[in-house]
Nucleic acid binder design. Sequence first.
DNA 1: TCATTATGGATCTTCAATGTCCACAATATA
DNA 2: TATATTGTGGACATTGAAGATCCATAATGA
Lengths: 162, 162
Amino acid sequence: MQFSKSTDYALHALLHLGHSERRSNIGIKELSTTLGVSESYLSKIMSKLRQDGIVRAVPGVNGGYELSRPADQITFLDVIQVIEGRQQLFECSNTNSQQHRSLAEEGVVQQDHECSGKSECLVEQVMNGAEQQLHQYLQEHTIQSVLDMAFKCSNHEANKKE
Amino acid sequence: MQFSKSTDYALHALLHLGHSERRSNIGIKELSTTLGVSESYLSKIMSKLRQDGIVRAVPGVNGGYELSRPADQITFLDVIQVIEGRQQLFECSNTNSQQHRSLAEEGVVQQDHECSGKSECLVEQVMNGAEQQLHQYLQEHTIQSVLDMAFKCSNHEANKKE
DNA sequence: TCATTATGGATCTTCAATGTCCACAATATA
DNA sequence: TATATTGTGGACATTGAAGATCCATAATGA
Ligand code: SF4
Ligand code: SF4
């Protein structure tokens, strides 16, 4: 269970865009050189990011990509969900097993009673709870927050040298 | 990014073992029937669980599996780590890119200074932080805790009928 | 000894992730 | 308008991990 390389690339591409906000368009060539990833593959990823409204793209001379909203409004969760998809961390594939039926009788699988509003089994409840923890954390961290921390550290370094 | 089916199977197998603590050995046949998964495949999974000390196995007549420690000491994290492995959620594969070098200069990649004790880049810090949140949650939930909740709910149901 | 049960190696299939290539559309500029 | 530039998306190849099966072997109890 790991994030894909594409997610890695997407995050780094966005960091580069966020870092270079002055010039408004960054071409795939520059991104490719910077990240050390082929243009072909990276362009697929950028395309996905565009389809989900994370970046804007303009073709033609002097075209390229730019963030479509401020870097502090692009969370890690946003990026991950675009690239990895939005399926749940855990999706049971056994709902017609003998065990599922017998667990259902005992209440492990919640149906409509007041023990829990959701019609979600207890195993899924644990897993979805875990997923929520993860999502919450990832939502609190943005492209900008990484850039900010870098800036702080870099200042700190500079001060030390005086 | 999803948990594998094997993890699903492992959790359910352990739930079955935890639920049937009376009889001390549950064979692969019973598990296979209960979960609706082939004996061959399930036995691989059980083997892994044994190698990591989650279950005990005894071959021969009347052999089978049993939990090697109380169900309340088997956390979801334990099981997931056995099956999915212990690699990190995020492992950067770009440490020799041009971008990495320039980020390193700015402090995004921490080395040994006091801005952060670890020699870990800021991107990895975010990702590892997220992973820790996830792990913490998964560590708080055990095979027993699911069985307990089921029991409570089932009691609740029974009371309603009186 | 013998039937039973778990183990581990070999092997097969499937499928998503990774990666490349190319024809085409959109754009700025001369 | 003509042209060079740049992103888009479809097709396709490669790779490796997940999922799954089979079988020879080892361990055990009766
Ligand atoms: S109890 Fe939950 S996790 Fe288990 S088989 Fe049923 S739905 Fe799936
Ligand atoms: S900055 Fe961190 S995540 Fe980015 S390339 Fe360097 S080590 Fe990897």
